[in-house]
Design a protein around this nucleic acid. Structure first.
Lengths: 362, 362
DNA sequence: CTGAAAGCGCTTACAG
DNA sequence: CTGAAAGCGCTTACAG
């Protein structure tokens, strides 16, 4: 007959106190031993670890967060999940953070500053240990919220040398410049820039495009087609059709592979040979770009590495460790494929040169 | 001169006690009022709300979780994020849960039962209020873990009438059957089934395919090409090339649009007219399938609705409310496009029939 | 290097 | 319908 104990509110999980009792030390010592904090006598660390393992102890994140004012959550704000670019970034980020005991909370902003602000407010209520945000374009309120919170924050995809800013990205402008130079090298002079969404990164690519064309003395503002709506494969097809009928450029730099893929899919319907009549290039090198006919020239962006590096930087910040370089700029590479082959190349059998790619440092 | 108070560990946030003081009631009453629990006098509810708003009170999720043994986190386990299918599901899920005050923690299993188990263990440590898992295929340990935890769980993408099981999905088999019937109706007899990944849902589509062909008296096991590796656009191209050279079927049912898109992209390189020589169909209707040339016949799957319905079901379970139907089966629709056009249709101008789609209930 | 006390901010369980 | 007390499981801040 088990005695009727006073009603408890225990959750059934093994607690630190139980581990301490088993190990024959105080709960605080177990806490310190398990967290690797301070100098605890090696022997006690071993005893604490053994007892914790034996009992299957799992620290309670809620109790930990309440007592320490810091959770093991990292809030991540990205514009979209329906773009492989951000999925790759997120997977790398999440994998790296998880290895170090942190959970990732994802907020999807849909490129809307107010949505971003709302998401951030909600996430801040959960006392995240760290924060990852996309780029630098956001509302003043959001910026102030981040600043005032004191939560370590890493910016991804773009770079900035501003003091106090932590970021991991690459030079969108340099990549846009290099891609445009590649188109110029193919002999094109009338080169269009076709973009949608028009976020900061897209506009930085546009700047690279302009710089290259100005240097070559053939910048024509009329050859820019800038559309504010979300980017999509279908939109790429429409933009391609309009561009070809209205200004018939010799080459088109689409601000991302979604649009460029749409152009390549629309081309046979429109009876426009690519690259025979017009060269086409994209950006980000998304799945499918290497398989289309013709295969698509693009810029391979280092999103996995950005995710990994950003996670590592944030881990240092969250632990209060010094960060060697607050601004990490990563290399990208130009991937040259059939869609921008020079005329004489285009006449070769379709398969030739498909795997060709040249690298350029960002 | 501010008096030197004893060092506190306050986090700076507004607490329930402060709201209570401002409202002139006890903290418990404010707690109850804000949570809408029990019958609190309407006047006190109003006072509590007003005070909370005035002070900008945000409940501390960690304290709440610690005291109540339940968090506001919902753990979601999905195989991948690099497939629009799951992204659409997840976005709907997250949007609906967020509206009701729940956060979503995403775990990506990569179709690996051990990874799923590991992720679940980590997430369970955070006392999730609810759980969403993909399908029914998992390790016995994982199943036991879910069962023993007592955490409400909803299964998505597939359905099961097993007692005690909560699920939202559609009949993968019926959809596979209907798609195969469509191919038969186009006059094809030698119809191949080409699949990768081979998860439970893919094999249910295969069952639908087999059922339809057996009924028509033309099932040939040799026309099934089942590959265990992950599905991709490139793999679809390879499988298409092999199928056409080895068994030259009249139609191919690819288990998903990734593979089918790869086939459509490879076809012109291989000089194989689609649908002239072979009809091609996919599954899930992913972005790009309507833009390719020829556009791709597929099955539009109700992933957004699944996400929404699963979230609503889980909300009821988490609140302890009765669930009207524990197994929700949603309709899908057949989207007929150019890639399976009958011979006489294929000769019409390419644009004809592109937007055509017929609906069938699942 | 180790520990007893107090506290994090909430909710449960019990009274009234 | 309302509240005083106790407790959730951990860590901080202070001593020794």
């Amino acid at each position: 007959m088990t005695p009727e104990l006073p009603r408890r509110r225990r959750s059934g999980r093994v607690t630190l106190a139980e581990v301490a009792r088993a190990a024959g030390v105080s709960p605080i010592t177990v806490s310190r031993a398990l967290r690797g904090e301070r100098a605890v006598a090696p022997e006690l660390v071993a005893r604490a670890r053994a007892a914790a393992d034996a009992l299957g102890y799992v620290p309670d994140p809620a109790a930990r967060a309440l007592a320490s004012h810091r959770s093991t959550h990292v809030a991540v704000l990205i514009p979209l999940l329906s773009n492989t670019l951000f999925v790759d970034l997120l997977e790398a980020l999440q994998r790296t953070l998880r290895t170090h005991g942190y959970q990732t909370l994802i907020g999807i902003t849909h490129y809307d500053p107010r949505e971003e602000e709302q998401l951030l407010r909600e996430q801040m209520a959960h006392r995240p240990a760290g924060l990852v945000v996309t780029g630098f374009e956001r509302s003043e309120e959001t910026r102030a919220l981040i600043q005032a919170s004191g939560v370590p924050c890493v910016h991804v995809m773009e770079t900035s040398r501003a003091p106090g800013v932590h970021c991991v990205g690459f030079s969108q402008q340099d990549a846009g410049y290099a891609l445009t130079q590649h188109l110029l090298a193919g002999g094109a002079r009338r080169i269009a820039f076709a973009a949608a969404q028009l976020d900061a990164r897209v506009m930085q690519r546009a700047e690279g495009y302009r710089r290259a064309l100005r240097e070559a003395g053939c910048y024509e503002p009329a050859l820019e087609m800038l559309r504010p709506e979300p980017s999509s494969i279908a939109l790429g097809g429409h933009m391609f059709a309009r561009l070809m009928s209205e200004s018939a450029p010799e080459a088109i730099f689409f601000c991302n592979d979604d649009l460029a893929q749409g152009a390549l899919m629309a081309a046979p319907r429109l009876g426009i040979p690519v690259p025979g009549q017009v060269a086409v290039a994209g950006f980000n090198d998304l799945p499918g770009s290497d398989q289309l006919m013709p295969s698509l020239t693009s810029v391979r962006t280092p999103r996995e590495t950005i995710g990994e590096e950003a996670a590592l930087m944030l881990l240092r910040l969250m632990r209060g460790e010094p960060v060697p370089r607050p601004c990490v700029e990563l290399p990208w590479s130009l991937v040259v494929r059939e869609s921008t082959a020079a005329p004489h190349e285009a006449e070769r059998p379709a398969k030739a040169g498909r795997q060709g790619s040249s690298k350029a440092e960002g």
